[in-house]
Design a protein around this nucleic acid. Structure first.
Length: 754
DNA sequence: GAGTTTGAAACT
DNA sequence: CAGTTTCAAACTC
């Protein structure tokens, strides 16, 4: 197909116009793909990561070819100091990662994450192997090339590719600048990308090239980017980095190609590959799905050798798909196809996304949504409206309304799944996560958006804003500024709010840190490389916490408390006016409520570890929408007396909050410091997800029997009033808190933050 | 759907 | 830091 395209008049014409030598692209590597895989952007996602993503994307689209690199990690004037720091660190990432020196993480895990991602697409010494590389290696083996050769050349390949990546980015940037108006830009980019994806091919024979898998998703991404205005770059990026389940598909799709050449040596790297290429995989979901639809009569890969052509063909069709994206109109067919794809890969657990890493926040809004995970993902992926996209990849179409978070949640869960894969004994956790995800998705349908009228959706009054989400059409807000077009304003506002209260965007309900730690230990593959662990740790921290909460809930109900307690006077903590009740947690000594009757635990008895059936039943009567009993029925595996968090949260739209309670503050990750997450001395560290805020919880203080990890940083002594603690914790304390929370953004959807 | 209640957030 | 005001969700009718 590629050959055909080259021969086509259009292609020739393009080549005549393009200042870039097509052959050159063949040599370029997958770096571009990596770019596209960066985590889903979200205004509310970690600013650092966002800035990275944005800057990277912008760099690609940058009209100024003279500064292709600088913008790569610079986020304009919006980049905070911390961000800048991160950027600097990122620049060093390649070397650091290459050395895999734990101590190089002095700046903290968060700071490194972007780097790690970046390294994915070029770091010479990176321990992470791109999918392309891995795949190529496999191809080589399959072609008769001795494994030793493939491995020995691996390093060289990386180095060369690293350089090529840089070149390629610049090339792309130039193309965009000069050719966009011509209208064929996407074509050229498609070609470029295609070649990029096949960069490794340069070392392979023609036959091998035929076998090389092309990433149509990349093409789609490129074409999309080109077609849309630069200012929508972020949105596009989000769109691209969408569905986690999509990532699974890629594995499935590629299976035929890779299965022939199993390379034990690459197993470990395959994991990394899966993780790092998640974004690509996501794209593939869309691309492949469309390919199915568009191809129609065309024959699909009948053999490995033909997949190459098939994928190229997809590229062609991508054009059509691309249009769909541009139109921002969700395509039913797309959704359907995606759905099929999802099912295709349903059993595959390769889906893992770094992309979700950053912004992935599972936010409250996410709970509103569609039914099943797969459907969720697909719609989100396929029905990418500009607004939705900007919403963080998680936002899908209007029809999907607030599915954004769910998607992310799915991502998180997928990642969980991925992580769990290596360890059989962790399957249970994964299953739970998936189950929870689906349940939440179902529950989310009851969700709705904000209805702000005077806050411009720029205050915590706004649930969307508080949850780190952009408002979308379903919102009934007036004069809303919480939209991608006002990103600057949104970010600035968030900063201001955080400056006043560092925990403003932190989860309102925090859960037992020990549980999280425990979970991390149990679910984290100890055989992962250090950096894998680091990245996964941050990625999963939130989801882990969330899951852990579920797991832990049955053990210590009192371990989860509202971070600063409620102040109810008239609701008796029996209605959703009460944040504790709303979050599905009992009141604690931190609460200043009067006449507390919280069914999840009264203030004067918050130490109790079990719910009183009577109270729950009473609540059920009061809550006509959903009853605990009903939930119990649905989750028979959950103890009756103590409904699982899922059950508790499954009540109404707010229920998600309980799961989301661990939610991160998208922007709270603004500044990261090494101390926060010092994993440097633990090559095989087991992620200790000690959430500092949790430690501040009175409950935790009381029940804090098990210490967090040795590396855990504790904030200043607990305060009864979280506000006091936050303010008194000083900058350092605050940052620590935020950092610890930050990674959680990926799980935000499952957690109700506000 | 309009109006009321409620308590968090924001302000002073 | 306490008191007040503003705000929007939750709730009621």
């Amino acid at each position: 197909m590629y050959v055909d395209m080259q021969d086509s008049p259009v292609f020739n014409y393009i080549n005549s116009l393009s200042p870039i030598d097509p052959v050159k692209f063949v040599q370029t590597d997958h770096s571009f793909n990596s770019l596209s895989f960066t985590s889903p952007s979200s205004v509310f996602a970690s600013p650092q990561i966002i800035s990275h993503r944005e800057s990277r994307l912008k760099s690609i689209l940058s009209p100024d070819p003279l500064k292709p690199e600088l913008p790569l990690f610079a986020n304009g004037n919006k980049t905070s100091k911390a961000d800048s720091e991160t950027v600097r660190v990122s620049d060093q990432c390649a070397e650091q990662l290459g050395g895999l020196t734990p101590r190089s993480s002095a700046r903290g895990v968060t700071a490194m994450l972007p780097n790690a991602i970046k390294c994915d697409f070029g770091s010479p010494a990176s321990n992470w192997v791109s999918s392309d590389l891995i795949e190529t290696s496999r191809v080589r083996e399959g072609a008769g090339v001795p494994p030793s050769f493939a491995q020995s050349s691996k390093v060289n390949l990386r180095e060369r590719q690293h350089f090529k990546n840089e070149v390629n980015l610049r090339e792309i940037s130039r193309i965009d600048q000069t050719e966009e108006a011509a209208g064929w830009d996407w074509v050229s980019l498609v070609s470029d990308v295609d070649l990029l994806d096949s960069s490794i091919i340069e070392n392979t024979s023609e036959e091998e090239q035929d076998q090389e898998t092309v990433d149509p998703g990349t093409i789609t991404f490129v074409s999309t980017v080109l077609q849309l205005p630069q200012d929508n770059a972020t949105d596009l990026e989000n769109m691209v980095s969408i569905s986690p389940s999509g990532s699974c598909k890629l594995s499935e799709i590629r299976e035929p190609v890779t299965q022939s050449g199993e390379i034990g040596d690459f197993q470990d790297k395959d994991q990394a590959h899966d993780i790092l290429s998640s974004s690509l995989q996501k794209k593939l979901v869309v691309t492949e799905s469309r390919a199915k639809v568009d191809e129609k009569g065309e024959k699909r890969g009948q053999s490995n050798s033909k997949q190459h052509k098939i994928r190229r063909r997809c590229l062609v069709f991508e054009t059509g798909s691309h249009k769909k994206y541009s139109s921002l109109i969700p395509s039913q067919s797309d959704c359907e196809v995606a759905h099929e794809e999802n099912r295709l890969v349903a059993s595959k657990s390769s889906g893992h996304s770094l992309s979700m890493l950053p912004g992935v926040g599972l936010h409250l809004n996410a709970l509103a949504a569609t039914s099943k995970n797969d459907r969720f993902v697909k719609c989100k992926t396929l029905a990418s409206g500009r607004q939705l996209i900007s919403m963080q990849s998680s936002m899908s179409s209007d029809s999907l309304t607030s599915s954004q978070n769910i998607l992310i949640g799915s991502s998180a869960l997928n990642s969980m799944e991925k992580v769990s894969d290596p360890c059989d004994n962790k399957v249970k956790v994964v299953e739970n996560a998936l189950q929870t995800s689906q349940e939440l998705v179902g529950e989310s349908q009851a969700c709705k958006r904000c209805n702000c009228k005077r806050s411009k959706c720029l205050k915590l009054y706004c649930e969307c804003f508080a949850a780190g989400l952009y408002c979308v059409e379903p919102c009934s807000c007036l004069d809303c500024f919480n939209k991608p077009m006002h990103e600057d304003t949104v970010l600035e506002t968030r900063r201001l709010i955080e400056s006043r209260n560092p925990l403003a965007f932190a989860p309102k309900v925090i859960r037992n840190a020990d549980s999280a730690t425990d979970f991390g230990v149990r679910s984290y593959p100890s055989d992962y490389t250090f950096w894998q662990q680091v990245i996964l740790a941050s990625q999963l921290s939130q989801s882990i916490l969330c899951i852990a909460s579920l797991d832990e809930t049955n053990k210590t109900p009192a371990s989860a408390r509202h971070k600063r307690g409620c102040n109810c006077r008239r609701s008796s903590c029996l209605k959703k006016y009460c944040e504790c009740f709303q979050g599905g947690v009992g009141c604690s000594v931190s609460c200043r409520c009067e006449g507390c009757q919280n069914a999840f635990g009264r203030k004067d008895g918050f130490e109790e570890t079990e719910y009183k059936v009577e109270e729950l039943e009473a609540y059920e009567k009061n809550d006509s929408s959903d009853t605990i009993k009903k939930d119990e029925d649905e989750h028979s595996d959950v103890p009756l007396i103590r409904p699982s968090i899922i059950s508790r949260f499954s009540r109404g739209k707010r229920l998600g909050s309980s799961l989301l309670d661990v939610g991160p503050s998208p922007m709270s990750c603004t500044s990261l410091k090494p101390k926060t997450f010092d994993l440097s001395d633990q090559p095989n560290f087991q992620i200790r997800l000690q959430v500092i805020p949790e430690d501040e919880t009175p409950q935790n203080r009381k029940s804090n029997c098990s210490p967090t990890s040795p590396n855990s940083k504790r904030l200043s002594p607990p305060h009864h009033d979280i506000r006091s603690s936050s303010s008194s914790s000083s900058t350092t304390g605050r940052k620590l808190i935020l950092r610890s929370i930050r990674p959680l953004s990926s799980v935000t959807p499952l957690q109700e933050q506000q």
